[in-house]
Amino acid sequence: MLKVITLFIALLFYFNTGFAQETVVRKHRLTDQVTERISVLKSDKSTRQGLYQAVTEKDIAVASGSFDHDKKTGLWHFYDPQGQLLQNYDYTKKALLFEAPEDTTSNLRYFVDKTLTDTDRTAKPVKAGGRYFGYIPYLKMFKLPEDLMGISRAASYVAIELLVSPGGRLADFKVHLFSGLNYHKVFNMSTDMPNEEDKIFIPATVNGDPIGCRIMIKCWINNDGGLELP
């Protein structure tokens, strides 16, 4: 029995030393307001492994979860910049576990090409990552052209327009720039997002049937010409 126990301990030590992978934490500014704290392999700093957090300048977490060999795994939590829980999403099961109610103060609006009645049962499209962190990749895709950098920030705003197909994929991506009383310029953006998961949504439904839906997201323009969610 002693030999068996000794052999088991030796094997356990082998597996722990052979497969445990040392990590380090890297910081990366995601937006002007949000910084990522990413655990990566010490031997390969391009591979995310272990804990992840995205925090505001006030050190409030807007996203927390874990990576396993560069893939999101398990339960992730997503918050607004005030620390209110917006969403729980299980990336292993690909399951939405919680989505906070959305009211008229939200910066997102949803539109379907269908006349709705009072009896229709509707469900909006949902982005894994929640209504704040989940849309940051779209904000990062746009920057004011050089010839518009002088535009008044106080008199201007941007609306991101996303078309989500009934199959839950990004079908169209536009950016609308509004300034003053009459200025309106539309930028047609590529739908080829850097990460495939950024193109995936839980689609909108009407009476249980998937339907295409446009999402409009109001944003502000920062001093560098990038976009921020209010």
Rank of each mutant, 00 (worst) to 15 (best):
131 R>K: 13
109 R>Y: 01
59 D>T: 11
93 K>V: 08
126 V>M: 03
142 F>L: 02
143 K>S: 14
110 Y>W: 09
121 R>W: 10
64 S>F: 04
52 Y>I: 11
48 R>S: 12
115 T>C: 02
34 V>Q: 02
4 V>R: 13
4 V>C: 07
208 G>F: 10
88 N>A: 09
174 K>N: 13
91 Y>T: 06
4 V>L: 15
15 F>C: 11
104 T>C: 03
175 V>P: 00
171 A>G: 08
165 S>G: 09
198 D>Y: 06
136 I>G: 06
53 Q>K: 13
149 M>A: 06
166 P>T: 04
156 S>P: 09
194 P>E: 04
172 D>A: 15
82 Q>P: 07
77 H>C: 02
205 T>K: 09
110 Y>V: 00
5 I>P: 02
9 I>L: 15
168 G>R: 01
141 M>S: 10
101 P>A: 07
190 S>H: 07
47 T>N: 14
52 Y>T: 06
108 L>H: 09
152 S>M: 09
100 A>M: 07
83 G>Y: 10
7 L>M: 14
58 K>S: 14
102 E>N: 05
66 S>A: 11
174 K>M: 12
54 A>E: 05
80 D>Q: 06
120 D>P: 06
129 G>P: 02
223 N>D: 14
132 Y>V: 07
203 P>N: 06
51 L>Y: 10
144 L>Y: 00
81 P>G: 08
151 I>G: 03
95 A>K: 14
104 T>M: 08
49 Q>F: 14
221 I>T: 05
175 V>Y: 04
202 I>G: 00
61 A>R: 10
84 Q>E: 10
41 L>N: 07
130 G>A: 07
152 S>Q: 08
148 L>N: 05
171 A>N: 15
207 N>C: 10
109 R>G: 01
130 G>W: 00
23 T>L: 07
47 T>Q: 12
222 N>I: 00
182 N>C: 09
119 T>D: 13
21 Q>E: 14
86 L>G: 02
